[in-house]
Amino acid sequence: MKILVCISRTPDTTAKIAFTDNNTKFATEGVQWIINPYDEWYALVKAIELKEKDPSTIIHLINVGCIDNEPIIRKALALGGDEGIRVNSNSEDAYVISSQIAAVAAPENYDLILLGKETIDHNGSSIGGMVSEMLDLNLISLSTGFQLNDTTIEATREIEGGEEIVILETPCVITCQKGMAEARIPNMRGIMAARTKPLKIIEPIPVSPLTETMAFELPPAKAGVKLIPADQPEILIQLLKEEAKTI
């Protein structure tokens, strides 16, 4: 079994969101970078669980990004990946990023390509679907868990208004979310081993983006909370009716 886990680098969930260069760039000063939680907690840990069941499993990690992303690739290797691949591109366009992943994945014939349901910075939910189309693979979106029996997958996925269980054969792409696996922290042995695990750097293939991010904007600041006395909730009802006009 050969698994590719796509990992993205995102600001920590508690990072302050601000922009520079006339609101065209995310302000990175003082920001802690992490592996996108959906990629790490769910996709990567699920791959590690599969490797624990079948030690012959090989886990490759791919990240599309600049050299600054290498610490998070090393962390993923420390958690349990076998080999890291970094495609040296700064693109923020989902189509370009997916094209890079697909170009690396195509000759490798992975049985499974796993990634999070979205990144917590772009919230695009696009890469899994795009990669699956580029490689002509089936896609299981928003999966909360799956079992693998030889080449057969039985996966639970969230759908509008509920969930369903689907059965299909590998290879396929699965986007992962809560329920898939439990978060882990790397141990010392893993951290030491990760130092010598291979991390390949690949130059990107030329692809034109389909979209272009022009600028960022922060939501208007809240006016501040209006406190209502606990014994007069009728004032709240009045404000929701007349001021906020939401009831």
């Binding site: 600001p11 969930t13 969101i17 922009f19 917590i120 910075d121 772009h122 919230n123 983006p209 389909l210 979209t211 272009e212 991010t213 022009m214 600028a215 960022f216 904007e217 922060l218 939501p219």
Partner: peptide, 15 residues
Amino acid sequence: SVFSGKAFSAVKLNT
């Protein structure tokens, strides 16, 4: 909507 609701981005569709 980006950054989990903490910001917006203006995206141009070139296609």
